[in-house]
């Protein structure tokens, strides 16, 4: 079942390369602040499509129409994420305050305990955030539904905590491996180009070619940034959120 989710999401995210480019442009313009929310708004639409769809259904990628709604949805998603993020931070701060007031071995133990607890709470909150966004999308964007912790817990219970965590781990592994593999491949290509240029160049004119080699390395770095911004990044985020949305539909 989980593999089906991954397969569907892989295909889904690769449906239209233009979408990836548009998202990449938003990412490039994100210093203007509003495009950040447009990206999250688009991701919200992906989740919305997924929770109302079925695995291996032929859903099209969402369109870039109705920018204002997209912006509002994006802000909602960001607010949900921030609110859930605050919980582990507050727990950590409380423990830190207690530990710093004790200031001895017990304080250190409490600090360790606090770190552990806040990491666990953070993981749970992360799960809750994703499911909360899905739950919000499922209930036609009703903002309060993102914080109905009991309902969200029931949803996760029905899917099974084990399934959820396994899916998450899989997503993290896939994301990290794809991103690193692409980066390494591009890096390798440009390193080979650079070195071969340097070897060829040393035979003719040393100084000039050394500068060119440096240029090739920098070009490789730029290439890496652009590929990850325009293709890999958008692809992986659509993939991730599609998977989570489909995971939400797995409840019986």
């Amino acid at each position: 079942m989980i593999l089906d989710i991954y397969k569907d999401s892989f295909e889904y995210a690769a449906k239209d390369w233009k979408t990836l480019i548009v998202l990449g442009v938003f990412c490039l313009l994100s210093f203007l602040l509003i495009p950040i929310f447009l990206i999250t708004g688009y991701i919200y639409r992906v989740v919305d499509n997924a929770v109302h769809g079925v695995i291996n259904g032929r859903d099209p990628l969402p369109e870039f129409n109705d920018i204002v709604d997209m912006f509002i949805d994006g802000v909602k998603v960001v607010i949900v994420q921030i609110v859930y993020l605050i919980v582990p931070i507050i727990i950590f701060l409380i423990f830190a305050a207690i530990a710093s007031s004790l200031n001895n071995a017990i304080g250190a133990v409490i600090m360790m305990l606090g770190c552990l607890i806040s990491i666990i709470v953070g993981i749970i909150c992360c799960l809750m955030t994703q499911m909360g966004i899905c739950h919000m999308a499922y209930n036609d964007g009703a903002f309060s539904k993102a914080f109905e912790i009991r309902e969200i817990k029931e949803v996760i219970d029905e899917i099974g905590w084990f399934n959820c965590i396994i899916t998450y781990l899989g997503l993290i592994i896939i994301t990290v491996s794809i991103a690193s593999v692409v980066t390494i491949i591009i890096g390798l290509i440009f390193t080979i180009l650079g070195f071969s240029g340097a070897i060829l160049g040393s035979a003719t004119a040393g100084g000039m070619m050394a500068a060119a080699t440096g240029g090739i390395f920098i070009l490789g770095m730029l290439m890496n940034i652009f590929v990850s911004m325009f293709i890999v990044g958008p692809y992986l985020s659509i993939f991730n959120y599609r998977s989570i949305g489909l995971l939400y539909t797995m409840q019986i």
Binding site: V68, D69, F71, I72, K76, D140, G141, A142, F143
Partner: peptide, 14 residues
């Protein structure tokens, strides 16, 4: 109106 936040997006478009 599904969600109250639709008021805001309506307001932004208006």
């Amino acid at each position: 109106m599904a969600s109250i936040t639709d008021c805001v997006s309506e307001g932004l478009k208006y």
